[in-house]
Design a protein around this nucleic acid. Structure first.
Lengths: 322, 322
DNA sequence: ACAAAAGTGTTTGGGATACACCCATGC
DNA sequence: GCATGGGTGTATCCCAAACACTTTTGT
């Protein structure tokens, strides 16, 4: 009751104010008793070209930072949430329409924008190559490999670092890949994606074994038979003793990192990201038989089991069970 | 160069505007071309009384939501960052001065505040009982056990749920406890803290073993000798083969959860948190010899090795090595 | 033809798990 | 004295880690 009254009261007061302003011919028309910062959103869009992790940047056409590269984003409207704003700006500036946005946090440095006080809400998004095609022709927008990222406008360097860190953290609690890969993909592609995100190298055989054990993968339709066989082989191993999700011990969570016999790569070569260490700080990388960089001969295709994948994503209490 | 010029330009323009406003006798003195939301902060303060996780709430003295409980917080000033704001409000409202604040995220629902559009940046903080004493006499501020949290003002229920989830996630990447416990604490207290946060039960012996292995604990000064012996016993086991941090395999990260032979508890009893499941969804809890709730007889005291603890905290790439 | 990836199993050691009895203290 | 929690060690089993050769395909 009180709430409603108060709301009405404020509305009336606000309208009166605007009328008075109009009479007096003031053009800037939104007035507050206390200073309000502007609120903007920025969006770090990650893509994956099958080899390297990439991000989408926009070349700024206006001051400040004209000519520099920045994340797509813009000012929040008064009737939209921060997430809606980010989605709208992304669509306006790059043509991408993205389902999943994850909040990175607020960047509220007092001088981060020379024009006025701007508080920015940053998000990150994952998009897959096939989506990219549509957005690619948006002028001024370009994909950069993580190693080639130039100096960015505003505090976007800082935001990018946060985004990488966050992505690496999130990958422990959620499967990642569905958003970044085409519908059907090879095990190598998936592995390269994980390696790109975490900055480590995995043992091929251990990676495949683990990935299949999670149950989120299924054979891509075309070659159903042979892959199904491979899956069943992998799933069958523990089954004689107990069902995969059947018993308590199976609910246990293992972490990804140590996973797959990881070997660390050297840190990112881009200046911007230079201080982000790889996940494991092992310095020596032997390029032995595990080294594999060039996507070459085509392998068997897999796809995600959307149901399981989504269930893993949704449940925040689920810790990724590699 | 351009940046500076532009900044000056805007400053001048803004001053002109304010002068004009003063002449015309307008009392609300901050005017913008586009509507700006207000920006506020809210802070979820966690405490631990040795038994239960608690949060600090403020009774609202003003509309909206007068008489309801809410997190300490308030509107951001134009010359402070969100974090500074949260720290200031916390100090003003509760007398607490807190070192570590972690950002939870932005809550930007369009109607979350009936007065005007308010975008809130939420933080969480961990405070230890000895700090609490000072803040306790702030009137209108009270500690609530997590199970007794009443319906909260605004969207603070939602924020609280996020805070719990975040805390549970963070505990995987950072040690937690230093901020929440007194300088010296018993192993049981530490265990109860972890159990309270994660909503699981641990095996006493396994918990102690693991905790000591991390190396972040040291005997509290009083009883140095006997505890040092116990520590060396625990640390000595792997040492004959290799130093604890010496080799690659030791850098591996293990996750906490499965840890210690965890047994899940039933979810929180508070309505607000009812839908937060415990970390592991095991329904049956046998209160066997592992059950221990009441802090009773005094045990050996430990304290954190601040150096190691801080190093673990700082390095975002470090994944908690239990 | 040659180079580069894909496909495929097994062994082993470390560590998580599970578990029980005695002792000290507080009530 | 009784109940509650503190203190302590070990056996097992599972899973991560390490590892190599053959086959396929693209150039």
């Amino acid at each position: 009751m009180f709430l409603v009254l108060e709301k009405v009261y404020f509305c009336v007061k606000f309208t009166q104010l605007k009328i008075r302003q109009k009479k007096e011919g003031i053009s800037m028309s939104y007035t507050y008793q206390y200073p309000h910062p502007a609120v903007a959103t920025d969006c770090v869009v990650f893509g994956f070209d099958g080899k390297e992790l990439q991000i989408l940047l926009i070349e700024r056409g206006l001051e400040p930072f004209k000519g520099m590269w920045a994340f797509p984003g813009g000012f929040m409207r008064i009737q939209e949430t921060a997430e809606e704003c980010a989605r709208r700006e992304l669509s306006e500036e790059t043509g991408l329409s993205i389902q999943v946005l994850k909040q990175l946090g607020v960047f509220s440095g007092v001088n981060r924008d020379p024009r006025e006080r701007v508080v920015s809400v940053a998000f990150y998004a994952l998009v897959c190559p096939s989506d990219v095609k549509g957005g690619d022709d948006a002028h001024d927008a370009r994909w950069f490999a993580l190693d080639d990222v130039p100096q960015l406008a505003f505090d976007h360097d800082f935001i990018l670092r946060k985004a990488m860190q966050q992505l690496r953290k999130d990958i422990y609690f959620e499967p990642i890949g569905f958003e970044l890969l085409d519908k059907a993909f090879t095990m190598s592609e998936l592995q390269r994606l994980y390696e790109a995100i975490l900055g480590v190298r995995f043992d091929r055989r251990n990676f495949e074994k683990k990935m299949l054990q999670t149950g989120i993968l299924q054979p891509a339709d075309e070659e159903y038979d042979s892959v199904a066989e491979s899956l069943s082989r992998c799933n069958a191993v523990p089954e004689p003793k107990r069902a995969f999700f059947g018993e308590r011990r199976e609910m246990r969570t293992k972490s990804i990192d140590a996973l797959f016999g990881a070997k660390a790569e050297s840190p990112c070569k881009s200046n911007v990201l230079a201080d982000i260490a790889p996940c494991e700080s092992i310095s020596s990388i032997e390029d032995n038989e595990n080294a594999r960089r060039k996507p070459g001969r085509k392998g068997r295709k897999f796809s995600f089991n959307k149901d399981k994948y989504d269930r893993f994503k949704q449940d925040n209490n689920f810790r990724f069970e590699f």
